[in-house]
Simulated scan of single mutants.
Amino acid sequence: MAKVFNVDSSFDYGMLAGASCAFGVFDGVHKGHCFLINQAKQTAAENGGISVALTFDIDPDERFHADRLKKLMTNERRIAALSQTGVDAVVVLPFTPEFSAQSPEGFLKTTFADSVPYALHVGCDFHFGARAAGGVGDLRAWADKRGAKICAHDLKSADGKPITATRIRLLLADGKCEEALALLGHPYSFEGTVTKGRGEGTDMGFSTANIELPGMMQTLGEGVYAAWATVDGVRYKAAMSMGVAPTFADATATCEVHILDFSGEIYGDVIEVEPVHFLRPMMKFDSLDALIATVMDNISWVRENLREETC
């Protein structure tokens, strides 16, 4: 696991001199991101320098569009995932209002100080500086004066379409977990703290763990899914719903998870949920019996069909 360096007054910019850097937000750490990172590792091996994943402490859109932002990972999970990609170091820049307001030239000066990387790997659509005014052409002009190499990559999937976090978010919003997985290269999952719920599930024979997610982490579309739930390091089959069930319109929980073959007390615990297959949309039932029968059918489907290789 790579060491994570937070850029502050004690940070030694000298470590970036001669380094091969993959630069980006890296939400989801998807296949396109991993390609960039692997390219940085390759040029580092060629040059004898270190490989660096260069990123921000927050998603820049959290500062500008927090009300409509949907994320694949929390910042903490994203940075932890970057540290496990095989790079030599992860360098985290604080995306402060002052940092974001800089011109492209000021942005690069703040990012690298007087150190010059050997290579900088970015996507072809990479933009930086105030109002995203800087592009790959500006990077090349900056690098040419300093002897650095800019490697801009066109990150596409097998179907010829770009691999982007936005594309993956849209797939998940449509409940297309399998298609999202193909672009991520790993399962989509989220973590949440189990809170006290309404209690109807227990009365109906299928108790649920209720999770309230921050708005920006509500990326998955509403519906019922087959999933995996990890509790205290143990992985269980689960049936989960995302959104508020119309039958209980006064509910506040954004996610309810029925964990198969589990009966422990987990209020206040953080669990990981990994939705892998869309089962049905949320719906309003005419009777409680109809709701119970449908939920039991969903649970049966999960028990009989969910296999470890699904994810």
Rank of each mutant, 00 (worst) to 15 (best):
M1L: 11
A2T: 03
A2Y: 11
K3N: 10
V4T: 14
D8I: 02
S9Y: 07
S10C: 00
F11D: 12
F11I: 07
D12L: 02
D12C: 09
D12Q: 09
Y13V: 03
M15P: 04
L16F: 08
A17Y: 05
G18W: 07
A19P: 05
F26W: 04
V29P: 01
H30P: 08
C34A: 06
F35I: 05
I37D: 07
N38C: 01
K41M: 15
Q42H: 07
T43G: 01
A45V: 07
E46W: 02
N47E: 12
G48Y: 01
T55M: 10
T55N: 00
T55C: 08
F56L: 11
D57R: 00
D59H: 15
R63G: 07
D67I: 00
L69P: 08
K70Q: 14
E76H: 04
R77C: 00
R77W: 01
A81F: 08
L82W: 10
Q84V: 01
T85Q: 15
G86L: 10
A89R: 10
V90C: 06
L93M: 15
P97W: 05
E98N: 01
E98W: 00
F99V: 03
S100P: 01
S103N: 06
G106H: 03
L108A: 02
F112A: 09
F112K: 04
S115K: 03
V116H: 14
V116E: 14
P117V: 04
A119D: 13
A119L: 06
H121L: 15
G123P: 04
C124Q: 13
F128T: 01
A133M: 09
G135H: 05
L139R: 04
L139E: 09
W142H: 02
K145A: 10
G147Q: 12
C151F: 01
A152L: 09
H153L: 15
H153D: 14
D154R: 13
K156A: 11
R169Q: 07
L172V: 07
D174Y: 02
G175C: 07
K176F: 01
C177R: 05
E179P: 00
A182S: 13
A182G: 03
L184A: 05
E191K: 04
E191P: 00
T193A: 13
T195V: 14
R198E: 15
G199T: 03
E200K: 02
G201Y: 12
D203K: 10
D203S: 06
G205I: 11
F206P: 08
I211H: 06
L213W: 06
M216G: 00
M217V: 01
M217D: 06
Q218E: 11
L220N: 03
G223L: 12
G223I: 10
V224P: 07
A226N: 09
A226M: 14
T230I: 13
T230G: 02
V231I: 15
Y236C: 09
K237Y: 07
S241N: 15
M242Y: 14
A245N: 15
A249Q: 08
A249K: 09
T252L: 12
T254H: 15
C255F: 03
I259L: 14
G264I: 08
D269H: 10
V273Q: 12
V273M: 08
P275I: 05
F278H: 11
F278D: 08
L279G: 02
L279R: 04
R280H: 10
M283S: 12
K284G: 12
F285E: 05
D289V: 04
D289H: 08
D289T: 06
A290E: 14
T294E: 15
V295R: 03
N298R: 04
N298C: 12
R303P: 02
E309S: 08
